[in-house]
Design a protein around this nucleic acid. Structure first.
Lengths: 171, 171
DNA sequence: ATAGTGATGACAGGAGCTGACGTTCCTCGG
DNA sequence: CCGAGGAACGTCAGCTCCTGTCATCACTAT
């Protein structure tokens, strides 16, 4: 991340990263499947947290509320590492390849959400749409959180964005 | 597309594509910024159609309905080339890199939608959320359209998916 | 002590992509 | 009809990403 921040993602070569770590290029690729993955290795644990939180949500509440609760959990986790998240996001925002990777990670989250919803008995296309709506809410909330003219925490912004979505779709 | 369909995207080399077209590898990269872009060169005209349709929608209707109308227009266009779209999608579904590219194209559509909504006077975060919701609806509708156990047309599925989203978020 | 396992290094090589330069062809104004 | 300018293409060199393969070394369990 230091190198990506200093010289930009494209200008940084894998050999440089490996060198900084005191390893060889080949070893880098044993730890990360490609040059971009360094910035996304934490996504797995986030996905696990997300689906665990969704699975733990009470069955009595509506699916979208269960998803919101799960997103709250993820939001709370990210909120703990606010500065790290912002630095990371600045790097991603500066490079389309990294944005592509981020989007497919989000799509993976959506797929996992939809899957868990189906396991809870939600039918398609409701399951897919609830999951996609949840991720959309999270995306917007995350952007607002990173922009940070205001200093609201991420879980609050998730809730607020969900309320906005409800307002916007109730026509 | 023939080569991608026959041997798969990864197994197909740019030299092969260029050869099949009677050109050289260098010329390929003059027409397409990278190997993936061949499958997405039509995205530009789709984006133009989308924002034009949104701009043309009457001001009297709710933003989400204006977005739905714009998605209808895109859906109708795609419905004309159903077989082509399905073959193309089969190739994309088989390769993560292509999925990444598709996702960033969809994100570009969402950004364009949000922009046009803001020009129509919709405030943020409502504009972003309406745009993201619209793209989410389109994604789900498109998946259902490609799956095609039923033979409904894409504009209908867009409408139906939007109704589902409204139902799902009205709790 | 030995065999097995995992992390690393060393090396070769393919494929994607870019920059630089030259050639051909086409068009347009004189 | 001619020459200037531009667009499309070919050729070549080169970098970087990424992979396969084999050898080496440290550590661990029996």
């Amino acid at each position: 991340m230091e190198l990506y921040a200093e010289h930009g993602f494209e200008q940084t070569t894998v050999a440089e990263i490996a060198g900084r770590a005191g390893l060889t290029e080949r070893t880098f690729f044993r730890h990360f499947s490609d040059k971009r993955e360094v910035l996304f290795s934490g996504a797995d644990s986030l996905e696990q947290l997300l689906i665990a939180a969704l699975a733990d949500a009470p069955r009595s509440i509506a699916p979208i509320e269960a998803v919101a609760a799960a997103l709250d959990a993820v939001g709370a986790r990210l909120d703990e590492r606010r500065e790290f998240a912002r630095r990371r996001q600045a790097i991603i925002a500066a490079n389309p390849e990294l944005q592509e990777r981020e989007l497919i990670k989000l799509a993976s989250l959506a797929a996992a959400l939809a899957d868990t919803l189906r396991r809870r008995g939600v039918k398609d296309p409701a399951a897919s749409l609830t999951a996609e709506a949840g991720i959309a809410v999270f995306k917007v909330a995350f952007e607002r959180w990173v922009a940070e003219s205001n200093k609201q925490n991420l879980p609050f912004l998730v809730r607020d964005s969900l309320d906005e979505l409800k307002a916007v779709t109730s026509s």
